[in-house]
C-alpha cells in the first residue's frame, strides 16, 4: 500500500444499484454465494457454478434487471482456485454487474452461457484457450488464439513457456 497517493473518495453507488441488488437477493438468492457487494458503478455477485445458467437467464429476462449485454468474460487463475468473471450490462436500466464463479482448479467446468448471451461464444473459447476453463454445452469448444495442437494454457500461473520451441510443435 503506497501512502503518498492522493486517493479519490469512493462514491456511493446509485440507488438503482441497491434496488437491483434487493431484487436479485430476494428472487434469485438461492444461486448466489455470499452477499452482494457494491462498487460505484457495479454490482458484484458471486454465483454458485451449478446455478450459473439459471441465474444468468434470470438476470437477462427479469424486466427489473434486464442484463441483456455481455461485455466481458475473464478467467483468472487464483492459484488455489480458478475464477471466471462475467461483466454484464443492462442497457435499459443502466446497470453493470460483475458475476463471478469460483471453480476447482484441477477440473474447472462451468456451464456455457452462449445460450443466454450469444456474444459469449468467442470470449469463452478464449477463456478455455488461455486459462483452461471447460464450458459445458459450448457449441464450438475449440482453441481460438493458439494453435489447435498447443499444449497447456498460457495464462495459468504454473504455465512454463518452453525455453525454445518451434512454432506449433509439441516437443
Amino acid at each position: 500500500m503506497v501512502l503518498n497517493v492522493r486517493r479519490k473518495p469512493a462514491a456511493p453507488p446509485a440507488p438503482r444499484y441497491r434496488q437491483a441488488a434487493e431484487t436479485i437477493s430476494g428472487k434469485y438468492g438461492q444461486h448466489l454465494v455470499g452477499p452482494i457487494a457494491f462498487e460505484e458503478r457495479a454490482l458484484k455477485l458471486e454465483a454458485d457454478p451449478a446455478g450459473l445458467r439459471e441465474l444468468a437467464l434470470a438476470l437477462r429476462d427479469d424486466p427489473a434487471l434486464g442484463f441483456n449485454y455481455l461485455s466481458c468474460v475473464s478467467g483468472v487463475d487464483m492459484k488455489d482456485h480458478i475464477q471466471v468473471v462475467y461483466h454484464v450490462h443492462s442497457l435499459a436500466n443502466v446497470l453493470t454487474a460483475q458475476l463471478r464463479v469460483k471453480l476447482d482448479r484441477d477440473n474447472p467446468v462451468v456451464d456455457s452461457l452462449v445460450p443466454v448471451w450469444p456474444g459469449a461464444n468467442w470470449l469463452e473459447r478464449e477463456t478455455y484457450d488461455l486459462v483452461g476453463v471447460q464450458f459445458a454445452g459450448h457449441p464450438d469448444p475449440r482453441r481460438i488464439l493458439t494453435d489447435d495442437d498447443f499444449v497447456g494454457h498460457p495464462l495459468r500461473k504454473d504455465y512454463l513457456p518452453p525455453a525454445y520451441r518451434q512454432h506449433g510443435s509439441k516437443a
Binding site: 446509485a14 440507488p15 438503482r16 441483456n68 442497457l91 435499459a92 436500466n93 443502466v94
Partner: peptide
Amino acid sequence: VVVGNPLAD
C-alpha cells in the same frame, strides 16, 4: 432495444 440515460438519475 431500449438504452437508458445514465445521466438522468
